[in-house]
Design a protein around this nucleic acid. Structure first.
Length: 771
DNA sequence: CTAGGGTTAG
């Protein structure tokens, strides 16, 4: 017995172990002061116990001595003091207690905690073979270390299993997406507990099979198991993810009757549940009723603030939170990039790193998409290099957002490189790449890739359609939509919103009405998102009456819906109606947004309602706390200039607290042309060109202003300057509809497949008409 | 006082 113990670690460790045990100062010298004092403290208490142990020599006290030793080893693993642990192991060997169950189990944990897997395995091989705890612990350890096949082998070989063993396997299989194997193991398990059920339910949820998880939850209840707080959090999450809110209500009922009503995690889940159900008040109610709160609670409340559109409140909460974690930061970064402040995402991402928080997958994914929406290639590609450093480049989420980012920045080739380098591509990557090509107008590449796709979903078509819409190829967008319908796929909300935008920009109303009918058939025409797109389409197509009807029928309107209708009325020249609607909205206590004020100021400008416009502008900051942005100032300059108050307008620009954008000067300039004022006009034009050398608008307006006062020599100079810098005035386009197809033409473009033929015919016709 | 299941983000 004793000899066997000696062989265990004898040859390898024995001498070192004894050395470090015998309180020589040597091995401790390299340690820092605090570590060495801590180790000394452990040894001191150990010495005391040792003395006590020597006094008693009965087997019973040897057993209690082993337990003392075990508890000391446990203390080493808790504080990761590997050397002290090693010393204790040596001592245990020396006095023959290393095979004691309490000692070797603690040794297993200690070596594992201290990151010494090889030593851990040796202890298991020596002593753990017949102990079920060591088997389970070792299986878990192998799985976590990435040797799942070894873990499986151990599981099959182990002499006896308990429900813990089975649960470990279920959980690990589920984490690896092997749902069928997990089910098989779960069914083989002779007896179940709440824990094994919970592992299974959550495993289903992890793999997107929420409804199966909920079904198992019912089965669990039928079999008489009482859910605990962990089961409840998992089940609520499954309800949220599957949208099973009806079921969620009865789960909430069960919780209320259970002893977990005041459990922290359960309440945290409830906040999110109510938020996703759209019941913000209840979410806040749960928060207020909670006795203690943690990071998760505060992070969930951030989400509540953002969901209600209170970005400022969210920020205040974030700044004042007692504790933050990676998820908190990710949440802020993601939400800022979605609520129209992507710049703030970039700032927070940098700060997160600066403050030493680990940047996780989602923070990377969000900041990349924020860079994409800012077209910020510099930041985006620097994030890309961080991604490579951390080794996230194989993640499909990350790589698809990188593909999207490079595409949005006009770098299709870089995007393609990432796409080609991916070992495993999912549909999201394909969609991103095809969509990216469309966005950059590379339709041939997009088509080729599209044909090669292993599967196509509605999102794929959506990416193509919205790519065409982005490039103002509205006719083609509609055509692709028809193709999509012919292929048997059912368009979704996103499809309709893109294609409706295309229709809004086409002259014919027929296709738009046709789409309206299609949404009606699907029974989705009143959904806020879609009805808003329809309102926009009718308004832009000049059928403002239909637009008003769709808007008034919408059961739930959001701020975008209101903005769309107000803008639609303003654009249709019904400024008075736009203002009246805005006032109605204010009476309903709906808070106006920046965007709405743009429409309102636009409406005032077009009706020359100068005083009203000034009033609205001033109320922005005073009444609603909205700081006017560049574009609001531009609207005000437009308002003043159109009404002929040119000097006031110029003053207004000079007194602006922020830097005027090019359009601000352009607005003044166009007022100068209308009201023939070449003195202010010339100043405005020069400011405009100073701000925006690369765009033609400034030059064109300047040459127009010279022309309007007959300064033909200056006109010629400006035109020459434009030719020099290679600028061209953007042309308008024309289109015709033949049956179901729209054909869009720019002057002498070559987009149409038969363009050469068309121009041949055209020239023939022209030569006949103009001899 | 030893093992198995978890909440917030994408």
């Amino acid at each position: 017995m004793r000899a066997r113990k000696r062989t265990s670690l004898g040859h390898i460790y024995h001498s070192t172990l004894i050395n470090s045990l015998s309180f020589h100062p040597k091995p401790l010298r390299s340690l820092s002061f605090s570590t060495s004092t801590a180790v000394t403290a452990i040894f001191k208490s150990f010495k005391r116990k040792l003395a006590a142990g020597r006094r008693a020599s009965t087997p019973r006290s040897l057993k209690s001595y082993a337990e003392t030793c075990a508890s000391l080893i446990r203390r080493c693993s808790c504080s990761h003091r590997f050397l002290a642990g090693l010393g204790l192991h040596g001592h245990a060997l020396k006095c023959g207690i290393s095979s004691d169950r309490s000692v070797f189990t603690k040794l297993l944990v200690m070596y594992s905690e201290c990151g010494r897997p090889a030593d851990r395995d040796r202890v298991f091989a020596e002593f753990g073979g017949y102990d079920i705890f060591s088997w389970n612990f070792t299986i878990t350890d192998f799985s976590r270390r990435g040797y799942f096949d070894v873990a499986c082998k151990l599981f099959e070989e182990m002499p006896m299993r308990n429900v813990v063993s089975w649960t470990i396997m279920v959980d690990e299989l589920m984490k690896r997406g092997r749902v069928l194997d997990a089910i098989r193991i779960f069914e083989r398990c002779p007896s179940h507990t709440v824990v094994s059920y919970t592992a299974m339910i959550n495993g289903f949820a992890r793999n997107g099979m929420n409804l199966d998880g909920l079904a198992l939850f019912r089965e669990m209840l039928r079999n008489g198991f009482m859910p605990n707080e962990i089961t409840f959090t998992c089940v609520i999450r499954a309800c949220i993810c599957s949208g099973a809110f009806y079921l969620a209500n009865s789960v909430v009922g069960m919780i209320a009757k259970s002893m977990f009503f005041h459990n922290l995690s359960v309440n945290n889940s409830l906040i999110t549940l109510y938020l996703r159900m759209g019941d913000v008040d209840s979410a806040k109610g749960v928060f207020n009723s909670m006795v203690d709160r943690d990071v998760v609670t505060w992070t969930a409340m951030l989400d509540v603030c953002f969901e209600m559109g209170d970005v400022m409140d969210a920020r205040r909460l974030f700044d004042e939170m007692p504790e933050k974690n990676e998820v908190t930061w990710s949440m802020m970064i993601a939400r800022y990039s979605h609520c129209g402040e992507p710049w703030e995402s970039l700032v927070l991402f940098s700060l997160m790193h600066l403050y030493g928080y680990r940047r996780n997958l989602s923070s990377f994914a969000s900041v990349i998409s924020a860079s994409a929406s800012l077209n910020n290639l510099l930041f985006g590609s620097s994030v890309h290099s961080h991604v490579m450093e951390v080794g996230f480049e194989d993640d499909v989420f990350i790589s698809s957002s990188l593909i999207d980012m490079y595409s949005k920045c006009g770098r299709s080739d870089e995007a393609r490189q990432i796409f080609d380098s991916l070992g495993v591509k999912n549909i999201i990557c394909w969609n991103a790449m095809v969509g990216g090509y469309c966005y950059n107008g590379k339709y041939r590449e997009a088509r080729n890739l599209f044909k090669k796709m292993p599967e196509r979903k509605a999102a794929t078509w959506n990416a193509v359609i919205s790519g065409y819409v982005q490039n103002e190829r509205y006719g083609d967008a509609v055509e692709i939509f028809n193709e999509m319908c012919n292929s048997g796929l059912v368009p979704n909300k996103m499809t309709f919103s893109s294609v409706l935008l295309a229709c809004a920009n086409l002259p014919s109303l027929d296709k738009g009405k046709n789409l309206h009918a299609k949404t009606f058939k699907l029974g989705i025409e009143n959904e806020t998102f879609l009805a808003t797109a329809l309102t926009d389409m009718y308004a832009k197509s000049g059928d403002i009456e239909s637009s008003k009807i769709v808007f008034s029928m919408m059961p739930v309107k959001n701020e975008v819906s209101w903005t769309t209708m107000i803008q639609g009325l303003a654009d249709s020249g019904l400024a008075e109606e736009a203002l009246a609607l805005f006032d109605d909205m204010l009476k309903m206590n709906i808070c106006p947004t920046e965007q709405m004020f743009l429409s309102i100021l636009f409406a005032c400008a077009h009706c020359c309602l100068v005083d009203k416009g000034i009033n609205y502008f001033e109320s922005m900051e005073k009444t609603y706390g909205i700081t006017p942005k560049e574009r609001h100032y531009t609207c005000m300059v437009d308002l003043l200039s159109r009404a002929g108050h040119l000097r006031e307008a110029e003053d207004f620009i000079l007194k602006m607290p922020i830097k005027p954008e090019a359009n601000t000067w352009a607005a003044l300039l166009s007022g100068c042309i209308t009201h023939v004022n070449d003195e202010i006009g010339e100043r405005a034009a020069k400011m405009l060109i100073g701000l925006e050398k690369e765009r033609a608008a400034g030059y064109v307006l300047l040459s127009n202003i010279y022309a309007s006062v007959g300064k033909w020599k200056d006109v010629a100079e400006v035109r020459a300057l434009m030719r020099e810098t290679g600028l061209k005035k953007g042309g308008g386009c024309s289109w015709i509809q033949i049956r179901d197809r729209f054909h869009t033409f720019y002057s002498w473009d070559s987009y149409h497949p038969n363009s050469l033929k068309i121009y041949e015919v055209l020239e023939l016709l022209m030569s006949e008409v103009v001899p």
